[in-house]
Design a protein around this nucleic acid. Structure first.
Length: 437
RNA sequence: GCAGGGGUGGGUGAGUGGUUAAAACCGACAGACUGUAAAUCUGUUGCCUGACGGCUACGUAGGUUCGAAUCCUACCCCCUGCACCA
């Protein structure tokens, strides 16, 4: 472990940009720092593990992490370069904030003796904010020219549909948040992705304007709670150029009911060799020698996947606890260990309770059901045509036996202990089918 | 508001009356090879059908035609200039 977070983050490749003096502050003082979490869904997604990891690391170095649940800013929405956002209802935002809160509590220590993490909802102050006061106190500090400089706003200005005043104002709200935290919690660092740089600097600028202390001659001598800073991380993409944290184009979630621990684990397990070291640095607390050891392992014995296994273990346990990891590893062993056939139904149910599953009524199998239709009924394929295609190509399996004839009948004979069937497509897509009724 | 360009399958994008379920590329899926990797190679990639064949589809709604993604009309949306706001 290096002596200060900044060096640590630099080594981990997580510093894209920071305000001058930020490194010095982090090396010599213990400060409060914050990151905002947008409550646009009831669960955080994998991409948001990045800010979580940053906060967690700050805490380890003795700084105080503050997670902001954007209950207020979530009512507005940060402008996207393409199109206006759909406003979420107040109820939805509140619900989402609750979900996010529960998840953050697993990653940050809220009971630490010296620097317990804090979780604050910016609705606390934004909802109370009076328009006139806001325009006079905060709005007056910014020129529209400054605000127009933001990339996402520029992009929108070039379009006929434009950008609503609502979203245009977002930047000021975020700046105001930072000011509130600065005043109320002495928060001196805001972090985020590099796409947030503009918004974060707006906050820094606002604080500097409002909280500067001056000498007799009017020159700035300092700031009431110390100089505010900004630090942003690079935006992470995979070696193949995709957005990090997406599988088949869908986001993976931290909520186990939305993304099972098994799928979560598998995502990390399957990380490209080219990405695995970066991910170890970003998402695990492993120290430098350990990561360098794994890096070496990737180079010399890639087939062992030591780095991927370790990555998957570390991150899954952080997100889903020991139970979640056990479950993910049990399912993995059952599916990929080639011993499905030897297990009984209750063992399988036990182990795979969490695996992607489908249900087919027993009555459908009484007279036998052709395999292609069964595959659709069980949710392995979306259409009969797709099922037939899959079978033709030799990628369909029933209880680990390849099926080559679409009309092959699935009957009660195939049931494991009379109530379960395992379907598989290709190498790694398994589906547990429960026969009901 | 005026003028011009455009809306095609998951994406980019060809196609301007029949031979077009719609080129090409990407993505996706499967197979081979492997390490549950990458790269590569092969196949598949609207739906129903074992197959013949059928059905639905090219912004939306109508129309012309034996026949339209392709022509006409109206509407919606996007883009590019110009004007207005200044």
């Amino acid at each position: 472990m290096t002596t200060n977070v900044f060096d640590e983050l630099t080594w981990r490749g997580m510093v894209y940009d920071a305000t001058p003096g930020c490194d010095g502050m982090l090396a010599t003082e213990k400060v409060a720092c914050y990151i905002g979490f947008d409550p646009s869904a009831k669960s955080l997604h994998m991409g948001q593990l990045i800010p979580i990891a940053l906060l967690a690391r700050m805490q380890r170095y003795g700084h105080t992490p503050i997670a902001i649940a954007g209950g207020g800013t979530g009512m507005i929405g940060d402008p996207r370069p393409t199109a206006e956002r759909q406003l979420l209802s107040k109820e939805t935002v509140e619900e989402n904030v609750l979900g996010i809160r529960a998840q953050l509590e697993r990653f940050l220590d809220f009971k630490a003796k010296n620097n317990p993490a804090k979780l604050i909802n910016n609705a606390d102050w934004l909802f109370k904010l009076g328009l006139i006061d806001f325009l006079r106190d905060t709005g007056k500090q910014f020129t529209v020219n400054y605000m127009l400089d933001k990339e996402s706003v520029k992009a929108r200005l070039g379009r006929e549909a434009g950008v609503s005043f609502t979203e245009f104002s977002y930047m000021l709200l975020q700046a105001y948040d930072y000011l509130q935290l600065y005043r109320g919690h002495g928060c001196r660092l805001q972090m985020g992705g590099s796409d947030q740089w503009g918004n974060i600097l707006a906050g820094v600028d606002l604080i500097k304007k409002v909280a500067a202390t001056t000498n007799q001659a009017g020159a700035v001598t300092g700031y009431s709670h110390g100089e505010p800073h900004a630090l942003v991380h690079p935006l992470l993409t995979t070696a193949s150029g995709e957005k990090f944290g997406k599988s088949e184009g869908n986001a993976l979630w931290l909520d186990r009911s939305m993304t099972s621990p098994y799928r979560f684990y598998q995502y990390w397990f399957n990380v490209d060799d080219r990405d695995v070291v970066t991910y170890l640095k970003w998402f695990t607390l492993l120290d430098r020698p350990e990561i360098e050891g794994l890096e070496e392992a990737v180079r010399t014995e890639p087939a062992n996947r030591e780095a991927q296994k370790r990555l998957a273990r570390e991150v899954t346990i952080a997100a889903h606890g020991q139970d979640g990891l056990d479950e993910a590893e049990r399912v993995t062993a059952a599916f990929f260990g080639g011993e499905l056939a030897r297990l009984g139904a209750s063992d399988i149910e036990d182990v795979l309770g969490d695996a992607p599953s489908g249900h087919v009524p027993r009555s459908a199998l009484q007279g036998g059901m052709s395999f292609d239709r069964f595959a659709v009924a069980a949710g392995l394929c979306v259409s009969n045509a797709e099922a037939r295609r899959l079978i033709d190509q030799g990628g369909a399996y029933l209880n680990d036996a390849r099926i080559l004839d679409p009309r092959q009948a699935v009957t009660v004979e195939h049931l494991i202990d009379g109530r379960i069937v395992i379907l598989r497509r290709g190498v790694k897509t398994y589906r547990l089918v429960q026969i009901t009724g």
